[in-house]
Nucleic acid binder design. Structure first.
Lengths: 229, 229
DNA sequence: TCTCTTATATTCGTACCCGAATATACGAGC
DNA sequence: GCTCGTATATTCGGGTACGAATATAAGAGA
């Protein structure tokens, strides 16, 4: 089998997963995904959806069941998942659950560059972030418990939400600690930071800020493309 | 000022940030970023770099200082940051630190779809993930403390690494709990799950798996484009 | 001194992403 | 029964991302 260039995207997997229920046309797939709240964990853009489905068809993972024309509405193509599609879905899913993948959250990028702002301001901004995070976690916790306890929704369908909540709480905790450290001066090197900022200081060559050797592997996970199945 | 279409990307910000030190040509910027380990937190692709710099120039955030030709090497264009560039850097940075942004980690997407696998297998896969995560966190912790205690690297330059580590530990904790719950049967509804999986069951319409109302706002952060400055 | 490998520096073409436009149907109100 | 807003369903085009190709220089052996 020729190694596929791109790893099947989350949206493509969501499509396959939806077609496990029954054959559908793309728009209906999107509706169902949104209705089930999957759009909170997987980016769904109409612009992409049709391309994605087309790719799946080219790869033989879905096939057109026929084009139905209801009334004089635009023509719709109904797709059905193939055996290869089912195999791809479970295969890729296994991969995604088994292997952590290094990703690039915006906040992490911002932290890398934040030395460009004075420490006092960063402390202030972090407090604002913290407030927002706390608000979000509170809301999310309430909704989760309502769905589980109130509505009797099985936890199985809320795993993503539980995970997202846990991550957000962890981030809030980390931000809280850092903000506190900056505020009460227990964060080491704030003076250097302030000085460095005020004077636009370039630390002579790049001395003191490099991370050539030991720092290389500080972050784990596959950075590049993952191994094939 | 006409609202810019795209929010300045992390790579673009990294470019601006590097040019704060001194004027440079694109390749040199990339070298320096990698040397400082920023490539662990910001994706740096040569293919993108030159486009990004070109965009920055079009937007007036950097300007060509002149093209130097050293020996008969390929011609290099040296760029310098402008006042507008400095403003954009700090403005966007403020935004990124202040406001949490909803992102779409692969693992979260996988959790949304994981019902397609039988619970026993998921339990097994989670244990494998956990092992990988534990390995990564152990390594990262060791390196961090070596850099801080051993090498005397200021914490300021390791914020991203500390954050990434904290997030990874949190994920490991969550995965551990879930895996345990699945293993010892304390996770509610595994029977339903197994049944649903075996029989390819479509729960009659979509009853029982919808999340129309309450579930909408389970995940916070700005989902779409962020507000302008 | 020849050539082989590695580092320097950028360009190109294609594949992909996705906002916006398009086009029809349907129900509600006047 | 007409029209206006909203839901249905897909296509299109411009822009961005990025792998791979290109081209020169420098250093290391033989």
């Amino acid at each position: 089998m020729p190694a596929r260039r791109t790893n099947t995207s989350p949206l493509a997997l969501a499509v396959l997963s939806t077609l496990m229920d029954r054959p559908m046309h793309p728009y209906e797939i999107a509706q169902l995904l949104k209705h089930r709240g999957k759009d909170q964990s997987i980016k769904i853009r109409y612009g992409s959806l049709y391309t994605v489905v087309q790719n799946l068809e080219d790869r033989g993972l879905v096939e057109a069941e026929g084009t139905a024309r209801e009334g004089r509405r635009p023509e719709r193509t109904v797709y059905r998942i193939t055996d290869a599609g089912r195999a791809e879905l479970v295969g890729r899913l296994r991969e995604l659950v088994r292997e952590p993948v290094k990703e690039y959250p915006l906040f992490e990028a911002a932290l890398t560059l934040v030395v460009a702002l004075p420490p006092e301001e960063v402390a202030d901004l972090l407090v604002q972030r913290l407030r927002a995070l706390d608000k979000e976690t509170t809301t999310a916790r309430a909704m989760l418990s309502d769905l589980v306890d109130g509505q009797g929704m099985p936890r199985l369908f809320l795993l993503e939400a539980e995970y997202a909540l846990a991550m957000k709480e962890a981030e809030a905790g980390w931000v809280r600690t850092l903000a506190a450290g900056l505020a009460d001066g227990s964060f080491d090197g704030v003076d250097d930071w302030r000085a460095r900022h005020r004077t636009r200081e370039v630390p002579d060559g790049t001395r003191g800020t490099e991370r050539s050797k030991a720092g290389r592997a500080l972050f784990g996970g596959e950075t590049g493309s993952e191994a094939a199945d």
